[in-house]
């Protein structure tokens, strides 16, 4: 358990350093994805299974996709360079090999089943269900009002981002600039 924490911590540190040092924002986004996955692993080690799942679903599934979408949208001039970067034969070879390894693991597990091993050898009384149950109790009993406020916040952010990224808004403000 400690060893896996140190490995994941090293991955977090290295990949976060890569995020801030890469020149290409797309590489930064992909390293950020590595950071989020490693942090989700650390949350699993800390008995926070629900937070780990939320981390993967929201950060890795939502926020990173948003970042990559915006990078693609903004860096239109570098499209040719981007295409060249993704068509290196050696990278394709690695991608194919790793995809087949992943596929092999999935097929192996679904055919044979896995032997459940405990992350911590010492019998941990706080199982996944207990941790998630305690979390849900706190969220829906103690923190119900902040929960509702969070939903309003998300609604505001959604409307705000739609309004801000709309074409008419920018046209209006740049027209105003021209008028001045």
């Amino acid at each position: 358990m400690e060893l896996s924490f140190y490995i994941l911590g090293a991955v977090v540190l290295v990949s976060s350093l890569m995020v801030i040092t890469r020149r290409n924002p797309m590489h930064s986004a992909l390293w950020l994805l590595v950071t989020f996955f490693a942090l989700a692993g650390i949350y699993l080690l800390l008995n926070a299974e629900f937070v780990a799942a939320v981390q993967i679903i929201i950060y890795a599934g939502g926020v990173i996709v948003l970042y990559i979408f915006v990078i693609m949208l903004v860096d239109l001039s570098k499209e040719a360079a981007l295409r060249a970067a993704f068509s290196k034969p050696r990278q394709t070879l690695f991608a194919v090999v790793f995809a087949f390894m992943l596929m092999a693991v999935v097929v192996w597990v679904s055919l044979r089943g896995i032997v459940p091993f405990s992350i911590e050898e010492v019998a941990a009384p706080a199982s996944a269900a207990d941790s998630t149950r305690a979390f849900a109790k706190e969220l829906f009993l103690t923190y119900l009002y902040p929960f509702e406020v969070a939903s309003v916040l998300l609604l505001v952010a959604m409307i705000g981002s739609v309004v801000l990224a709309r074409r008419g808004m920018v046209a209006a403000s740049s027209g105003e600039k021209k008028a001045r």
Partner: peptide, 25 residues
């Protein structure tokens, strides 16, 4: 602490959406 972590994740998602919309503008 886990509840607060999830709230922080919520705020971070809202921040990313709004910030990137401002960036596009």
């Amino acid at each position: 602490g886990q509840v607060f972590a999830v709230f922080v994740i919520t705020v971070a998602a809202a921040e990313a959406a709004t910030g990137l919309a401002i960036l596009i503008a």
